[in-house]
């Protein structure tokens, strides 16, 4: 992979794709990386397909345009596969991670993708661990596993700090989110 890593998050409004990109960015920044995390803003509301992005690099990042050729794509909702082209612009050596119960091997033809394809049942995991289908934190776990972007132990401990800030008024959900991440890290498959 090149020095600059670009990531695209596909989700639906309200699922936390923007939060996932920001959390990933903030944690990566803590490890000394230069980062960008930004959503694509439009008039979309709850439920509409939305996008968010990351850039992560050891060098200073100066570009400020949108990401059009992401190295990594994370899809937070399986139904998006029928609505948007999640592999658009992704190079052949890119990585796509999808939240679905379906095995990656069965999806490969459907989305016509030559690179590395992974799947993880983020809804199942989060429903069991948090009590509701919030796909973004398990998808972060899966992304760290499949991309080697960051050291997982360090990532988890920084995520705990971020969650403490984010869920200061709802500390009971921190544990579940951490567990979701850890399980997805284990369960993501090619």
């Amino acid at each position: 992979m090149s020095d600059l890593i670009e990531i695209r998050w596909h989700g639906r409004g309200g699922q936390g794709s923007k939060t996932a990109s920001i959390l990933l960015g903030k944690v990566a920044a803590k490890t000394g990386k230069n980062i960008q995390a930004f959503p694509e803003y439009g008039p979309e509301r709850m439920g509409a397909p939305v996008l968010a992005y990351n850039r992560i690099s050891d060098k200073e990042i100066t570009v400020h345009c949108q990401v059009t050729e992401p190295d990594i794509v994370a899809v937070l909702d399986p139904t998006l596969l029928d609505v948007v082209d999640v592999t658009e612009g992704v190079p052949d050596n890119g990585i796509v991670i999808i939240n679905t119960e379906i095995a990656a091997s069965k999806l490969k033809d459907k989305i016509e993708f030559k690179g590395e394809l992974y799947t993880v049942d983020a809804y199942g995991i989060s429903t069991e661990e948090i009590g509701a289908p919030f796909p973004n934190t398990p998808m972060l776990g899966a992304l760290i596993k499949t991309t080697d972007l960051l050291d997982f132990e360090g990532f988890v401990s920084e995520m705990k700090n971020e969650f403490k800030k984010k869920f200061a008024h709802k500390p009971e959900v921190i544990e579940g989110n951490i567990n979701s991440m850890k399980r997805a890290y284990q369960e993501v498959k090619s």
Binding site: I22, A29, N34, I35, A37, F38, P39, Y41, I61, H64
Partner: peptide, 12 residues
């Protein structure tokens, strides 16, 4: 500063 591009993007 540029709207959204800077205002809404997380950067180091």
């Amino acid at each position: 500063m540029d709207g959204f591009i800077i205002s809404h993007a997380v950067e180091s």
